[in-house]
Structure formats: structure tokens, C-alpha cells
Design a protein around this nucleic acid. Structure first.
Length: 310
DNA sequence: TAGCCGTGGTC
DNA sequence: TGACCAAGGCT
């Protein structure tokens, strides 16, 4: 299928099928787009939606977030996961105020300088918030390209230069068309060309798919899953759940072991505290988790104990 | 660069 | 049920 036909087919499909997401609204600010892109890193849309709405209501511009303590960003991040993203978004807001007069910069290199903004997010914000022609490559786009053009079930474990070259070659010349193309391929990967059970029957470009033509060969490698149970990450997560709810510093002793006669909900953190104690981490593991949180800036040591960064 | 970093839904 | 997976970034 000629490239122009491919562009037209996906553009039409996108027009009919695209989800009505608030950060895609015409009046959404660049800040709103940036916040959405950071929140969406490794996190499904449905879980981002309510948190994004709350963030934009509370902090409609970078300066509004920048003048808050970083801990407020972490607290209102809730259970989105990877709370360092909240810290980086707060730092990005400060950098936008300090270096860009409070306005989100529109160029790829300037965006790339912001904390928490890597090659994907810089390209995505430049494209979706500023209408620039950028080579946007995320996990969805990589998977669609792998199937459509390479004929494999999954992309390589790590992004390759060849994939970037291919993505750049596929990009429509016209600026506005390139923005829609990026969004459409990403949407196709999210809704139809999914990792587990692709809905090829609904695919507007199945006739051009190299993977389908090859008989849907299985992946040639098995992705290594992320360990969770018993890991430091699990302990870190449990500690963060306590700190997010705590309204005052949490004594270390409280994190280390449950007082046998804790008959009250200490500072309203009884539930996450019980969850932490149920994990029953070894003392050295709890120590690793706590020192990791401290060195990451997700927690601070105060006379009264641990708390979110002020 | 490979390993690390949260969370919850899905099959 | 447990392993996989979700709009990555950082070191």
C-alpha cells in the first residue's frame, strides 16, 4: 500500500475512532499536554484521567505548581505509580518559571532539557501542544511499526536507530498531517494493535500488515517481567503510601514495627501502615528502601520522623 | 546499557 | 493465580 494511502486510511480511522481525551481538546494548554505526557508514562489512560483533571484545576499553570512544596506534587500524585515523576514534574515547572518565563517551551531541545522529559515526551509535547513535525516514537508506535512493516509480533527489546529512521521516513511532510499521523498510529496501538490480543478485525490497515501476511508469527523472545513481590520497590511503595497519607512526620519506629498495642489509627495512616507491616521486610531491606527514598528526594528526615519533601 | 523505578487491571 | 502490560526516564 502506497504511503499516501496509508496516511489517508489511518487519518480517516482516527477521525472516526479517536478517544475524546481532555488533553486533546483544542483549548488544552501546553502545560496540560506536558502534565498528561508525564502522567501517561507507563500508566494507563483511565487511571491518569481523574488525577490530571485535579492537577490542572489546582495548578492551571507551571508557576502555580512551582510555588508549592514538592511534597504536595507527590501527595496529589496519588497512586499513579513512579512517584519520582511527580518530583520531576514539579522540578520541570520550576525550570519553566526560571528559564522560560513561566511558559512551556515549544522546541524539542528545550523540552528535552526539562526534568522527566526524555526523547519521547519532548517530541510528543512539541507535536501535540505546538503542532510541530516531530518523530514521535512510543511503545504503541513501535509495536504498530513492528507488525505493519517489519512483520514481527513485537518490537526489539530496546529502541533502535533503525526504528527511528523508519518512523522519520513514514512521517507526512505536512506539519498538521504529521501531528495527526503520530496521534493516529499511537491510538491504533492503544486500541487495536495491542500487545496481547490485537483486534486485527477492526484494523483499518490490516491489508497492509506484514505480520498478518506472515501468518502472525509469535514473538521471537519473551519480555522479562518486572519482579515485584518481595522487592525493594514493593517496600518503597508501601512506605510512600504511608507518607502520602500522613499529616505529620512518621516516626521510624512506626515504620519498622507495629506497636503491639496500637489500638488507634495513628495520624490516619493505620491502613497503609498495616500493609507495610504485613510485608514484613527484613531490617536491611527497609533500610535500603528508606535510604533510597531519601536520596531520591521522595522523603525527608525530620526530628519527628519521615515525611514528604517540604 | 541494562537495571531500576509503582500501581492496578487483565486474562 | 501469577505473569504480563501500560503515551518512559535516568543512571
Amino acid at each position: 500500500m502506497p504511503l499516501a494511502e496509508l496516511h489517508a486510511a489511518l487519518d480517516s480511522w482516527f477521525g472516526d475512532t479517536a478517544r475524546d481525551l481532555p488533553w486533546r481538546a483544542a483549548d488544552c494548554s501546553a502545560w496540560g499536554v506536558l502534565v498528561s505526557e508525564i502522567m501517561l508514562q507507563q500508566t494507563p489512560v483511565v487511571r491518569v484521567l481523574p488525577v490530571w483533571e485535579e492537577w490542572l484545576r489546582r495548578w492551571p499553570a507551571p508557576a502555580d505548581l512551582a510555588r508549592e512544596p514538592a511534597g504536595e506534587a507527590v501527595r496529589s500524585w496519588g497512586r499513579l505509580g513512579y512517584p519520582r515523576r511527580a518530583l520531576r514534574l514539579h522540578a520541570a515547572a520550576a525550570a519553566i518559571v526560571d528559564n522560560h518565563g513561566g511558559a512551556v517551551p515549544g522546541s524539542y531541545p528545550e523540552l528535552l532539557e526539562l526534568p522527566g522529559v526524555g526523547s519521547y515526551t519532548a517530541a510528543a509535547v512539541a507535536a501535540f501542544a505546538f503542532g510541530r513535525r516531530e518523530t514521535v516514537v512510543d511503545t504503541n508506535i513501535r509495536r504498530v511499526h513492528a507488525r505493519l512493516f517489519t512483520g514481527t509480533a513485537l518490537p526489539a527489546p530496546a529502541l533502535t536507530a533503525g526504528e527511528m529512521r523508519l518512523a522519520a521516513q513514514l512521517l507526512p511532510d505536512d506539519g498538521a498531517a504529521s501531528v495527526r499521523w503520530n496521534a493516529a498510529v499511537m491510538e491504533l496501538g492503544a486500541l487495536v494493535c495491542t500487545a496481547r490480543a490485537p483486534k486485527c478485525g477492526q484494523c483499518p490497515v490490516r491489508g497492509a500488515c506484514a505480520w498478518l501476511a506472515a501468518g502472525e508469527p509469535p514473538p521471537t523472545y519473551t519480555p522479562k517481567g518486572q519482579a515485584w513481590h518481595g522487592t525493594d520497590r514493593q517496600v518503597r511503595g508501601a512506605v510512600m503510601a504511608v507518607l502520602r497519607l500522613a499529616e505529620s512526620p512518621v516516626a521510624r519506629e512506626l515504620l519498622e514495627q507495629a506497636p503491639a498495642d496500637l489500638g488507634f489509627d495513628a495520624d490516619g495512616i493505620g491502613v497503609p501502615l498495616a500493609a507495610l507491616h504485613r510485608l514484613n521486610p527484613a531490617p536491611e531491606q527497609l533500610e535500603r528502601a528508606l535510604s533510597g527514598l531519601l536520596s531520591d528526594g521522595l522523603a525527608e528526615l525530620h526530628p519527628g520522623g519521615l515525611r514528604l519533601p517540604g
